[in-house]
Simulated scan of single mutants.
Amino acid sequence: MDSLQGQLLVASPTLTDPNFARAVVAIANHDEDGALGIVLNRPSETEVAEAVPELEDVVDSAEVVFVGGPVQPASIVVLAEFENPAEAAFLVVGGIGLVSERTGLERLDIVTARRRVFAGYAGWGPGQLEAELEREDWIVDPAHPEDVFAAEPVDLWGRVLDRKGGQFRLLARMPTDPSVN
């Protein structure tokens, strides 16, 4: 099994699970025990300052919490661009990875250049992600640093498919509900 760490999972248009419809998931860890990822393109309407006041000073003002996935939605996950990638719990792409407890909130703005806050994460048990890939639920593409911190995250699904090229460009332009076309 090849690890998908550092890859994006782009939901196939046929994936209808509301947790993942048109989702773009960055894979932070993938091994024989399963996989862990963060949905990148689901901003909530809740500001970080309101939901997690202790993180208010380490994100841009008015930054919102993103819905990182259906697993443990009450837990907070922070993706950050580390000055020293060894500080990350898991790396997603380049120096961007998950903040670990050892980093500490008091050091977060010193050891990282930028941060994004997520509620929950996406997780798969052993063999589960492989089965979903076999069913073609996901399209795999390498993660780029700008994917994690996209200025327009709701457009990420179409942008990733578009850059993949070929037949995927056609999918990128597919309406959410093809019957209204």
Rank of each mutant, 00 (worst) to 15 (best):
L8D: 12
L9R: 05
L15I: 06
D17N: 01
P18E: 07
N19D: 11
F20C: 05
F20A: 08
F20P: 00
F20N: 02
R22F: 02
V24C: 10
V25G: 08
A26Y: 11
A26Q: 03
H30C: 06
H30G: 06
D31L: 09
A35R: 06
A35P: 01
L36D: 01
V39P: 00
L40G: 05
L40Q: 07
L40N: 07
N41L: 09
R42V: 00
R42W: 09
S44Q: 10
T46K: 10
T46M: 11
V48Y: 07
E50I: 12
A51F: 14
A51E: 13
V52D: 06
V52F: 13
P53A: 12
E54P: 00
V59W: 00
G69D: 05
G69N: 02
P70C: 08
P70A: 15
V71K: 01
A74P: 00
I76Q: 00
V77G: 02
V78D: 01
A80V: 07
E81F: 06
P85T: 02
A86E: 15
A86V: 12
A88C: 05
L91S: 09
V93H: 03
G95T: 07
G97A: 04
G97K: 00
S100Q: 14
S100C: 07
R102T: 14
R102N: 08
L105Q: 12
E106M: 06
T112D: 07
A113V: 14
R114Y: 05
R116F: 12
V117T: 02
Y121L: 15
G123Y: 00
G125Y: 09
G125T: 12
A131D: 12
A131Y: 03
A131H: 07
E132V: 10
L133F: 04
E134K: 14
E134D: 15
R135G: 07
I139K: 04
V140M: 06
D141H: 12
P142Q: 10
H144G: 09
E146A: 15
E146W: 10
E146M: 11
